[in-house]
Design a protein around this nucleic acid. Structure first.
Length: 172
DNA sequence: CGTCTTTGACCGGCGC
DNA sequence: GCGCCGGTCAAAGACG
């Protein structure tokens, strides 16, 4: 369970966006840390891949000012998203936050539906999507959007961790 | 009784 | 404009 690996890709080519990409990378690190810290009762959990999608550049401020004010890159700045793939039997990956499911859609070219979750902490608008690859149904893709504005709340993590240890030390 | 799922409706973007 | 596609809303229900 100690072994996990994250590969960054896709962000190096998009030049600029220096600081924000660093923030995104930090966010990914924190997430991967939490995930690697356990909380899965499933056997094999491994982060294979992490990807930064888009960059965040205080777009709300820019929009509010209304001034073009260097719309820089003037591309539509999509919200900061980052995704990674995990190989797991179950798609409920408890990363220590409380999520409320608010939607599920079937996507084209994928026989598995995509689930939409939102963080239930008051004022915290972090969202995540979970979908499974039809190509390899062992792989679950988790896409996070935004950063949590509160510390992780995970009353069950210790329990899960100890449970995992029990499973490790007492193979039947 | 509060919390979280379920599920169709709804809506906006985009290609034709 | 129209219809597809992906994301969200919200009412109703499940569950502890």
């Amino acid at each position: 369970m100690e072994k996990y690996q994250i590969l960054f890709h896709g962000d190096g080519s998009s030049t600029s966006s220096s600081s924000s990409s660093a923030a995104a990378a930090a966010a990914i690190n924190s997430y991967s840390f939490n995930l690697a810290g356990g909380a899965h009762s499933s056997t094999h959990f491994q982060v294979n891949q992490a990807e930064v999608i888009g960059t965040d550049a205080t777009d709300q401020n820019n929009m509010k000012l209304g001034k073009k004010q260097e719309d820089k890159k003037n591309k539509k700045i999509k919200k900061q998203k980052y995704a990674f793939q995990t190989r797991s039997q179950v798609d409920i990956l408890d990363d220590g936050y409380r999520w409320r499911k608010y939607g599920q859609k079937t996507v084209k070219d994928n026989r598995f539906p995509r689930s939409y979750y939102r963080c239930t902490y008051k004022g915290c608008n972090v969202k995540k999507q979970i979908q499974r690859l039809s190509k390899d149904e062992q792989v679950v893709v988790t896409t996070y959007e935004g950063m949590h504005t509160h510390p992780i709340e995970n009353p069950a993590q210790d329990y899960e961790q100890s449970l995992r240890l029990m499973q490790t030390y007492t193979p039947i």
